[in-house]
Design a protein around this nucleic acid. Structure first.
Lengths: 221, 221
DNA sequence: GCCCTCCAGATTGTCTACAATATTGTTGAC
DNA sequence: GTCAACAATATTGTAGACAATCTGGAGGGC
């Protein structure tokens, strides 16, 4: 097993929430694969914490829909059928669109604009020849800044619960990271210009293109 | 302490998920109030389970945004400011609208139509002189049938995570149950007629009216 | 009278051991 | 050779005890 930054035992004992984020990020970079079982003892060793903390983390992941727990059988990373993936993206389209629109509307009166500008610039800078790890990190920062700028607590809360992570892991969206990065940059720029209509349109189109990708899968499989 | 159906110790030991639902329903009928602390030992006694199960339930509630846990201080039911409430309803408007639209579109090919018809009829029957408990139960069945009819797994998943429960508890929406019931009935009927546009419009208007209620609070407080 | 320190109570965080359950592999009959 | 029953292993579920931390109040110094 490689000793990535996620699994290094040099890192400080992460709390349950920290493990949740680590596992989700592990999904996105391909360290875990959907369907895989997550054994408590294994996670204890990996993160250097007791079973209690691991159980807490698994409970949280279950609520987020990332793992499914069956009694006396433990936890496994969920898999989404192509149809479920399309469902997920339909909802994502709405929420992402609302976030972009709200953010563009509030860009003038916010200190968060700077954060979004930085995240957008970072994505643009990395655009060519970026490692999966770098892309995942930059994208997370972008979405985080976007949610902060939109300044809608419930929206931030829900965006964290959409199961896009599973999709990205399961259907190899990582290959398309170049295209995705440039599309996100376009959205970021429209937001920074304070153009709600265009920001919303571009973000929804981005998600729509993902849906098309999945529809291909549906035919193929 | 009253021995309601929720807290009766005659009920079979609920799992963590069962306690989550019980506590959320307790919120909606006014058994718990936002801001209240939830002490582990108390919940153990009430539900007749060990601390482990209670902790699991609290973890799940935290992820759902219903309680906030501060280290070494335990869990407390969250309170939402009027602004946060409006944020919540903005998102709810989108999701509820999508659910109603999808359900209306799929009403012809589904066995779930019957379930929705029953739930709508039940709400209509109760319309005058219903107890809070009856209303809460009927409404939950309605939303559950709606989500099933919409047949979008991610939408169902997210609808369960919107923090409307907290709003309803905190701002006394229970008083408006008569009006709300009739508005939901109208939405249900449009869905059963297979009219996506009208179903979506009515559902979004329903949520908009709730927003207006909260805006009054914002001025008042 | 006011404030600071310290102690007692209450509550949560964590670890350990054991029980309950599911999975896997083995044996034996047919 | 196939299938069923059974034993062995692995994994999770639960209870108990103890440690760590926070809260609130009493007491003493200024």
């Amino acid at each position: 097993m490689s000793t990535s930054v996620l699994t290094s035992n040099r890192m400080r004992k992460p709390s349950a929430l920290g493990m949740v984020h680590a596992i989700i990020e592990g999904l996105e970079v391909g360290e875990y694969i959907p369907g895989q079982r997550l054994v408590e003892a294994e996670l204890c060793a990996r993160f250097g914490v007791g079973r209690q903390a691991v159980r807490d983390a698994l409970q949280q992941l279950q609520v987020r829909g990332v793992v499914s727990i069956t009694p006396n059988r433990g936890a496994a990373l969920v898999t989404l059928t192509p149809q479920q993936g399309i469902d997920t993206l339909k909802v994502t389209e709405l929420l992402f669109g609302l976030a972009a629109e709200s953010a563009a509307r509030k860009i003038s009166d916010g200190a968060n604009g700077k954060r979004l500008a930085l995240a957008t610039a970072e994505l643009e800078r990395l655009q060519s020849s970026m490692s999966p790890q770098d892309f995942v990190t930059a994208r997370r920062k972008f979405y985080s800044a976007l949610a902060a700028t939109a300044n809608n607590d419930e929206l931030s809360h829900l965006l964290a619960h959409v199961r896009v992570h599973v999709l990205r892991a399961q259907y190899g969206f990582l290959r398309l990271r170049g295209q995705h990065a440039s599309e996100l940059v376009a959205v970021g720029k429209k937001i920074l210009e304070g153009d709600p209509a265009e920001a919303s349109r571009l973000s929804r189109e981005h998600v729509r293109r993902l849906q098309e990708t999945l529809k291909e899968y549906e035919k193929g499989a």
